[in-house]
Design a protein around this nucleic acid. Structure first.
Lengths: 244, 244
DNA sequence: TAGTGGTCTAGACCACATA
DNA sequence: ATGTGGTCTAGACCACTAG
């Protein structure tokens, strides 16, 4: 007798539920900050037990897509909430002092994507892109100089004015005004010497060692939607990382 | 009628089980690389359901203390296994090439802990400590210069010879020969200019920007057991980090 | 074939937040 | 008092590994 071979396509039920939940998130059925239906209700909708829904939500919660609050409900994570506002910025004061950032936007232009940016964003060289340059200040001192590239199609109408007017983190603006939510990012860190321009903005001598932080951010489906090239001044601050 | 107040000491059963499991790990009842008893057996031992044991193991597995292998069993994680051998080293080739490291030990001495090291290791200034200096090479080129400090009491008899003779990652030696297992670590990253000594070993000019990576590693109970000051040459390699 | 972890269920009850 | 997520159980069955 021939056996039915185990199909490579086997997927646990809770994984399928997880996929369905992610689709609802991506489609905007539940928006950032909103509460999603109760576990029991989702169990009814999907015709599975509560435990199965629970496991799916557990994973989405571990991936920072959902936030559980006992007694209240489960909510769609948002970059506008303090909990995850500066989740991607790993800069810390050397002595543990609280850090309050201030943004200063230097430039916001619509350009054609250069080759390296196009590659990271999975565009064609020359496609429309938006380039933002800004300075992050701590207590009035410039600390980070960022050059940010976004796909032009996703961020039509983004201007320096809108950036400057918005209260809260930039990723909060991106998710509420442009429907693009940053979920995860990869960073490549190097030590480099400050060039003339970075030196000018960061008020240091050219040649001063700076941290070069190149970030590619992804939204749902692992789609790259932002490239960011940062220069960090690390005399009084450092990039903090936890290894598990 | 007065109600019994909810005690602040409430702890879920699975958390208590988790603590018991960690105690068995710390005491060496199950050693790195060994298999721990089956879930059903642990459930019997602790007089709880399998699901409760399961949740405890789930968390320990997420923290990289245990490794589950379906069909085989659950094993104590070990720095000697390829999976977690270089888990704490985040250096990556710029073009994604595979990296093969080679260690060159420059120095291993028993000294009195300087103030800053003592503070991180929770020792008293002047307590016995071991200082190791070593070079990491990739394809024959020096890339990382490390200065490593360990508490003298935990690593009696550690010599340059033992370090050089050992095959495999240093943390593997620490866990098998000295019974100290590194579980997690904090890193502080800055950009600095190469001093004379770093420049000599890394074969660059003094003043070249280098990554300064200061690490404090912890074993069970969040006890600090290693301080490491690294200088990374990041011309052809970078420190890679994933933000979730 | 036997043993292990992995999935799924149904139901009971607890802890927390809010009205 | 009600609704939410959080815990715990007991049992059935599936998928993977190895002898």
């Amino acid at each position: 007798m021939s056996e039915v071979p185990a199909l490579a396509t086997f997927q646990p039920l809770y994984q399928q539920i997880k996929t369905l939940l992610m689709q609802s998130l991506e489609s905007g059925e539940w928006k950032p900050g909103e509460m999603i239906p109760a576990e029991t209700e989702l169990a009814l909708r999907f015709k599975v037990s509560q435990g199965t829904v629970r496991k799916a939500i557990d994973e989405l919660s571990a991936e920072n897509l959902l936030i559980r609050r006992q007694g209240k409900g489960t909510f769609v994570a948002s970059h506008q909430e303090p909990r995850s506002a500066f989740r991607f910025l790993r800069l810390t004061d050397d002595h543990g002092a609280a850090i309050v950032y201030q943004s200063q936007f230097l430039e916001c232009r619509r350009l054609r994507a250069p080759a390296d940016v196009a590659k990271w964003l999975e565009l064609k060289t020359g496609d429309a892109a938006i380039m933002i340059r800004r300075l992050l200040l701590i207590g009035g001192s410039p600390v980070v100089l960022d050059e940010i590239w976004l796909p032009g199609t996703l961020f039509r109408g983004l201007t320096a004015e809108k950036l400057a007017d918005y209260k809260g983190p930039m990723y909060g603006l991106f998710e509420s005004e442009y429907g693009t939510r940053m979920i995860r990012a990869d960073e490549r860190i190097k030590a480099v010497a400050a060039d003339e321009e970075a030196a000018r903005w960061l008020k240091v001598n050219p040649g001063t060692p700076l941290l070069s932080v190149e970030r590619v951010s992804f939204t749902y489906q692992d789609k790259p939607v932002e490239v960011r090239k940062g220069r960090y001044l690390t005399t009084q601050w450092h990039y903090h990382n936890e290894l598990g």
